[in-house]
């Protein structure tokens, strides 16, 4: 994180497995496995990572998120003030330089926020390694290292964030400069949407056709079928125990009665 840390313990530049592994090597060998050697549950692992994050940054995650929210609010206020100035006709000429300066400041701060969001996600998403791997796998060659995957995932998040908010807002904002009309704004909005739409199409094309997604799709579908089957069997068991007809049987009977009525009605019409 690009800010001063109030670390209570010794900060570690890379609080990674490397350190843990070297500590493990130095520790005396144990004959029997202890709970520390047993495979960690993802939840435990996640909690530990969150704790480590808090220790290193000197604040809790909740605090970080709250502060992040406050900064977002400030940015929004700054942006809305600038927007109000630009759109107020009386300000259009004399406020140009001031507005431009504010715009640049806002852009700078938005980019800074983007970087920090990326950092925060990198730390926060680390516990979800498996999910992350599955998500980014389609974008990467098979030989990608875990670091490549993590970087790609966090950059994607950042790209989405900046793509959806910063870049779009910037472009719209620029069209609100003096001398430019609503037509420019509408055009910029259309162009942004088209750009986003094209990128989205490319992304879905890449993602939906990737072997990793296809594999995930098949497995998820298979699992959901098992679930449906279990629910259906539960329904059948209930009907066997209680003697009540199952929902399916009721539907079938209702439909058969309806069909029969329609047939009789047709026959009667024919006779008449």
């Amino acid at each position: 994180m690009p800010r001063a840390r109030k670390s209570k313990s010794e900060p570690r530049a890379t609080p990674s497995k490397t350190v843990a592994a070297s500590e493990a090597r130095e520790a005396p060998r144990r004959e029997t496995p202890t709970s520390a050697d047993a495979p960690r549950a993802p939840l435990e692992e996640g909690l530990e990572l969150w704790t480590r994050f808090a220790r290193e940054t000197g604040e809790t995650v909740t605090e970080f998120l709250r502060r992040f929210g406050e900064e977002q609010q400030k940015n929004y206020e700054s942006w809305s003030t600038s927007l109000a100035d630009v759109t107020r006709p009386a300000m259009r000429d004399r406020g140009t330089q001031e507005v431009q300066t504010r715009l640049e400041e806002w852009n700078r701060r938005a980019e800074e926020i983007g970087t920090r969001v990326r950092d925060a996600f990198q730390t926060a998403l680390e516990p979800q390694k498996e999910l992350l791997d599955a998500w980014v796998k389609p974008f990467l060659p098979k030989e990608a290292t875990p670091q490549d995957k993590a970087r790609e995932a966090t950059e994607l998040v950042q790209k989405l964030y900046t793509g959806l908010t910063t870049n779009l807002s910037r472009r719209l904002f620029e069209t609100l400069q003096p001398g430019r009309g609503v037509e420019d704004l509408v055009r910029a909005q259309e162009e942004s949407l088209k750009e986003f739409s094209d990128s989205f199409q490319k992304l879905t094309q890449l993602y939906f056709t990737s072997p990793a997604f296809v594999s995930m799709f098949g497995k998820t579908l298979d699992a959901s079928l098992d679930l449906q089957k279990a629910v259906k069997e539960g329904d059948d068991v209930f009907s066997k125990i209680t003697g009540f007809p199952s929902r399916r049987e009721i539907t079938e009977l209702n439909q058969a009665v309806k069909d029969l009525s329609a047939k009789v009605s047709r026959l009667n019409t024919g006779r008449a």
């Binding site: 056709t209 497995k219 449906q228």
Partner: peptide, 24 residues
Amino acid sequence: RSSYLNIWAHAPGFDAWKIARTFG
């Protein structure tokens, strides 16, 4: 491979008969 449907139909675990048995 021009349609997603043709690609997804080859997903491992995509068993059309199992789908048919499950839903009716």
